[in-house]
Amino acid sequence: MQTLEGPEPVTPAKLAPLARPPLEAMSGAIGPDAAVKLHAEDVSVLYGERVAVRDVTLDVPEHSVMAFIGPSGCGKSTVLRCFDRMNDLIPGATVRGRVELDGEDMYAPSVLPVEIRRKVGLVFQRPNPFPMSIYENVAYGPRRHGQKDRARLDEVVERSLRQAALWDEVKDDLRKKSGLALSGGQQQRLCIARTLAIDPEVILMDEPCSALDPIATLKIEELISQLKAEYTILIVTHNMQQAARVSDRTAFFTLGEDRAGYLVELDDTLKIFTNPANQLTEDYVSGRFG
C-alpha cells in the first residue's frame, strides 16, 4: 500500500486500487440537472479586520460528496463552517456574501442558527463524544429537540448506529459503556451516529479522519460513500487520496499573496486529480506544492 499522502503524482492508475467507488464511476456522477443543496456566493469570512478567506462562490449538488482540499490555513474549515453557522460562535468573526440552503438565505435575520444546525450536522476533526453512555450520546440531539417517547428514541438510536456502522460493535453495552471508552475510530463513528440521529439533510465533516488510524479511516470512508445516497456531504481533508476516494467534486483552496484563502478551482474530482485547469491545482495534487 502506498503512503496516504505521498509526493508522487497521483494518477488514475495509482488511485484505482484504492478508489471506492472506482474513479471512472465517479466522473459524471452528478448530472447538470442535480438540485443545488448548498450555494455560496461571494462569501468572505473575516476575523476582526483580517480577511481569512475571500470571495468564495460554489454550488454543492444534492446527494453528492464534495471535498475541500488545500494547504493548512487556506480557509477550508472556515468555509465549511459557514454552512452551519458555526462561525457565529467565534467572537469577532463575520461572514459576508450570501449562503443558501435549498435556495434560502441562511443568514437572513429571521433565521435562527439553531434551525440551520438541525438541518446541517457537523462532524469534528477530533472525535468529541459526550461523557455519557453510547445510548445517551446518540439520543442527545433528539431528546433536546423534544423527543420523549422511549420506543421512538430506541429506534432512532439503533437506526443511527446501524447507519454509522457501529451497531454490531456496541449493541451489547449501549447503556453501560461510556462513549469515551470506545476506540478513536469508534468514537468518530459514534459522533457520526449522533449527527445522523437529528436527521440532518447535510453533513459537514471537518477532517474527520485526521486523528484516526488507516483502518478506522477506511471505515469512515466507506460510510461516507453509503451516506451519500441520503445526505449531501461536504468534507474537508488534508488527505488528497481520501478526497479522490470519497468525493464526486473537489474544491481546491489556497492562500493568496494577501494571506487570505480563496477558491482556486472546483470541478469533478477526476478532473481535479488528472487534468486540472489551474497550474496551482496541478502543483498541489501532484505534490509539488512547497
Binding site: M86, L89, V114, R117, F124, P129, R144, R194, T195
Partner: peptide, 8 residues
Amino acid sequence: SASLALGT
C-alpha cells in the same frame, strides 16, 4: 460545540 452543532 458538539452540542451546539446538533442544533441545541
